[in-house]
Amino acid sequence: MSKQNPVDQVLEELVGKYRKELGLFLLSIIVLGGFTLSILFSRTQQKQPVEVKETGKSLSAEVSVSPAKLSKILVDVSGAVNQAGVYELEEGSRVKSALDAAGGLSDQADLDFVAREINLAQELVDGQKVYIPAKEEVRAEVAGACQLGVIGGGNSSAAALSSGGAKSTAPVGGKININTASQDELESLSGIGAVKAAAVIAYRKEHGNFKTIEEIMKVSGIAEGIFAKIKDRIAVHGQ
């Protein structure tokens, strides 16, 4: 009988002594390996696209969201601008947007007048007219006002000089009918100078009579602040 190798003898003794522990260790490795493979397989399945088919055709759900429709307004831009015309703008647009749509101010525009009289931040309303006077127009209006002795706004007692002497151009204690008022009568209103008065008359000629006193705010340069000053002094019917 051959003699057993000492190393083999030692290993055999260790296996015999720790047989139970080795079995548990191997079992743990098998369980852990199976659990790891299960997780990897599950993740692989989740990444694969799922395609639902019906009668051999792929089904796909499409959700279309219609953008909210924004209201539009029409604004007439004329005078010393590069491209005068009627423009369609978004509701809530400002005077600056209308001027930009018209290509901006032309070289003939009176920039001092625009800076002083035009509120670029004023919100536009449908049917509003924005008129930018040229330098020559402003000079002519101011010169005419100087000859009459009424520059800028005034009050109900404002007077104009004529060849026959001084006379009142606005009714005392009454309201001014903005549909029939003359240049001088309009200038007698607080905040309405020569240029604004001319703009009111131009608007009236182009669009017809004002239907309400609030409609005067459609005239370029007449915003809520000026309207608040003159609303108790104007009318659209007989005085």
Rank of each mutant, 00 (worst) to 15 (best):
I192N: 10
R204K: 09
S42M: 13
S182N: 01
S190Y: 04
G33Y: 08
G221L: 04
G144T: 01
V219I: 03
V150T: 06
I151T: 04
L148G: 08
Q48M: 10
A199V: 00
G208E: 03
L89W: 09
A121T: 06
A68L: 04
G173H: 01
L89H: 12
V77P: 14
Y131P: 07
V200G: 14
A202Q: 10
V86E: 10
E215I: 15
D112E: 15
R116N: 14
E13C: 03
R94E: 07
A109T: 02
L99G: 01
D126C: 13
K69T: 12
S93T: 03
P133Q: 03
A102W: 00
G79I: 06
G149A: 07
A134I: 06
L70V: 11
L148H: 00
F210L: 03
R204T: 06
S28V: 05
A181P: 13
A134N: 15
K96G: 05
N155I: 05
G191F: 02
K17H: 11
K229P: 04
R204S: 13
Y131F: 11
I234K: 02
R116G: 12
S190F: 04
R116P: 11
N5Q: 08
E224S: 14
N177Y: 07
V63W: 01
K196A: 14
G221T: 01
K47Y: 06
A98C: 08
V150Y: 10
A159W: 11
I230T: 12
A80L: 06
S93A: 09
N155C: 15
V138R: 01
L59K: 09
R204V: 07
I176Q: 13
E88G: 08
I222P: 08
V200N: 15
P6Y: 02
